[in-house]
């Protein structure tokens, strides 16, 4: 049974903004799914719809078999770290979490456990207004973990974390998945995502463009042929004339479309000397840029 199941999910804000457009996906237990998309693509809106903070204008989403609001003690089942949520600046970190725990009927013992998990014990008695960006992010993460939930929804959890924190987060998420828990995590740090997630969802301009295991998606993606040549400019012209997509930086070319054999033949026919010719499996970043495009609508 899918842990999260979205069916034709749509959200329109007012008349003009279609934030999420007919998005369907399902997330299996024990997996980490990366939720990727350019700014304004609809990631946060989708995550907020899963936990009933935003009402869909079309379609539906189910989590753990039902609507979020019908779950008994929902924060003990689903933990969420969401953009644009926050803490009262005058409260201490520990009190901020106690407030969250109290509303959810979670014991205060969990507050200390969660603070320890994110390594904030030292600052627990200090007011949140004195926290750094990364400390606030850790506190938000602690709030999501408070109920020891089986599902985690994390909206850009790496925001503001230092390299050590990011590495900790990666290990932490892997360990959660190994316990059979399910994670849906949005992120812009693709290199991080690549090392952490099993599956990805790619959303752009409100529409879901790709979903599936990361290995499969990168395999089906177009490979990139890289070439170094003293006559790079000439080769670039020849390839573009054949309809290839080419990026040139000085003597290096990155070519999409033709395979390495074809590039080599074009070079020979054109009398172009090659210093290097190799095929590269696209990284998640290449894949992402291919699918979601680099340019935003004006």
């Amino acid at each position: 049974m899918a842990v999260i199941e979205a069916e034709h999910l749509s959200k329109r804000f007012g008349k003009k903004v279609l934030a999420v457009d007919d998005v369907s996906f399902s997330i299996q237990p024990g997996t980490i799914t990366g939720f990727l998309g350019p700014n304004g693509a609809g990631k946060t809106t989708t995550l907020r719809m899963i936990v009933d903070l935003v009402r869909p204008t079309g379609g539906s989403v189910r989590v753990l078999g039902g609507r979020y609001r019908d779950l008994a003690r929902p924060t003990t089942r689903v933990g969420a770290l969401l953009d644009a949520s926050g803490f009262h600046p005058g409260r201490s970190g520990a009190n901020a979490l106690r407030v969250v725990a109290a509303s959810a009927g979670i014991s205060y013992d969990r507050v200390d456990a969660a603070l320890e998990m994110v390594e904030l014990e030292g600052a627990a008695r200090r007011a949140v207004k004195g926290y750094s960006t990364g400390m606030k992010q850790r506190l938000a993460l602690a709030a999501a973990l408070l109920g020891d939930p089986e599902v985690l929804l994390l909206d850009e959890p790496a925001n503001g974390l230092d390299p050590e924190g990011i590495r900790w987060l990666r290990t932490f998420l892997r360990a959660r998945a190994a316990e059979g828990r399910t994670v849906l995590v949005s992120s812009h740090v693709l290199a991080e995502v690549e090392q952490t997630v099993d599956d990805i969802l790619i959303i752009s301009k409100a529409r879901l463009l790709a979903q599936g295991p990361i290995s499969e998606l990168t395999r089906t993606a177009q490979p990139v042929v890289r070439v170094r040549s003293p006559q790079a400019e000439k080769l670039e012209g020849l390839l573009i004339a054949r309809g290839a997509a080419v990026n040139r930086l000085h003597d290096a070319l990155a070519i999409r479309g033709p395979g390495s054999a074809e590039v080599g033949e074009v070079a020979l026919a054109g009398g172009v000397v090659l210093h290097e010719l190799l095929t590269e499996q696209p990284s998640l970043e290449d894949l992402f840029l291919q699918i979601a495009g680099t340019r935003r609508e004006p």
Binding site: V51, R69, A80, V100, S103
Partner: peptide, 18 residues
């Protein structure tokens, strides 16, 4: 209004979606 101003309303409603 403090709940909206500081964004704690999100946590409030996550814990108690009713």
């Amino acid at each position: 209004t403090g709940e909206y101003r500081h964004g704690t309303i999100t946590y409030t409603y996550l814990a108690a979606p009713r």
